[in-house]
Design a protein around this nucleic acid. Structure first.
Lengths: 216, 216
DNA sequence: TGATAATTTGACCGGTTGGTAAAACATTAC
DNA sequence: GTAATGTTTTACCAACCGGTCAAATTATCA
């Protein structure tokens, strides 16, 4: 038989698993920097070190590769938020959420950029996920934050915009990396910038959410 | 004569000015959502309501359109930071900088996304601007912020990362608009979200930068 | 009005793109 | 070993891409 992988019920051979991984790795590289439409199959094949028809044997279309990547990334992307614990100490929960997101920006910048590209271009492939699972999870965690505020453990604030602020500030170091490095200059563009960012952001959010006399 | 606009020394006709504007308007639409490589001249021509050769009469290449847009946007993009006044009151300067950036995200989302796309894709067309004029301006303003901190007017913090945080949180509402609206749900996706965001961000940054006993 | 310059169009071109067909080659199962 | 299955390659195609050209049309102005 000559059916490509997607048509089979079960993953079979070792070679399949390896090649699919190799392809997705290459595809991540290219999609992350050029977006869906700006990416060509030839480019991916080139990075993966195989011929285009060979690549198309494993993923029948460009869409299929993109979808496989998006599914995987979206899931990982939400992990740090899932860990957000309602029972924990508010300040340290927020602090460690920031730290985890920042680590992801540092360790998986391509994944972050793939996601950013998708959203920037109007999320044509993941609108349902945004309005479904993603929204549900955020709703749930927003409720946790709201209850902390109500209990007087942190300052009153809109929990949704708090989450947006944590997302944007942390992902900025992956998505806008070129700009960050351009502005910081060569001498401050080492990995140390992530520690500086962590220090700053923890300070900002922790003291920004501290309860004080003037409240609200 | 039949020389396209770029070759002429002076802007001549009314029709030229109108058409160029029309084209850039259309190009902004398309570039902002598909990025440079993902955009086709046909698409732009279509949105602009003219034929491709006609469009190419005004801008000889896709690059030329993109460059014209980028130049214009980059300049506007920096305006709010330029207004940042060393002599003003620190807290209200930061507050109004946030407000201005948020207004830009609300009123010029396509411009923000064009810029974001360019950075995401590695800033191939504006690397020089990033390391030159942009860096210089940020360096200058960072020095102002540092002096405020030294004078005890705001909490000590890394001024570069403060600026990054303001950029990312505000632009988030333009660049990640689909996601923001998806998460907030239909009922909170009106223009009111910008006011909520402003309230939240002003609170976050102002009290996050306030001097307190345990200070930084 | 007519001459001149500015604008618009349709037909076209070479290169690239996403994807296919079929056969050659490699691997595995018996 | 050999038959069946899985993998890779070569050759290809139709559509699309950025861009050109020359002719047709329209605006400008003496």
């Amino acid at each position: 038989m000559v059916l490509p992988r997607a048509a089979r019920t079960q993953r079979r051979t070792r070679i399949q698993e390896e090649k699919e991984e190799l392809i997705l790795e290459a595809a991540l590289d290219v999609f992350a920097t050029h977006g869906f439409r700006g990416t060509t199959i030839d480019q991916i094949a080139d990075v993966a070190g195989m011929s285009k028809p060979n690549l198309l044997y494993y993923f029948r279309t460009k869409e299929a590769m993109h979808r496989a990547l998006i599914d995987r990334v979206l899931d990982n992307w939400l992990d740090p938020l899932r860990e957000f614990d309602a029972e924990g100490n508010p300040v340290s929960e927020i602090r460690s959420y920031i730290r985890r997101k920042l680590e992801m920006a540092r360790d998986f910048p391509r994944e972050s950029r793939l996601f950013a590209n998708e959203i920037l271009q109007g999320a044509p492939h993941i609108e349902d996920e945004l309005k479904g699972p993603l929204k549900s999870l955020v709703d749930e965690k927003a409720e946790v934050i709201r209850s902390w505020a109500k209990a007087g453990k942190i300052a009153k604030c809109d929990p949704y915009h708090l989450i947006f602020a944590i997302w944007s500030t942390t992902q900025h170091y992956a998505d806008f990396d070129v700009q960050v490095r351009g502005v910081l200059g060569e001498e401050r563009s080492g990995e140390g910038r992530f520690e500086d960012a962590a220090r700053f952001l923890e300070q900002l959010f922790v003291s920004g959410l501290e309860i004080r006399d003037g409240g609200a």
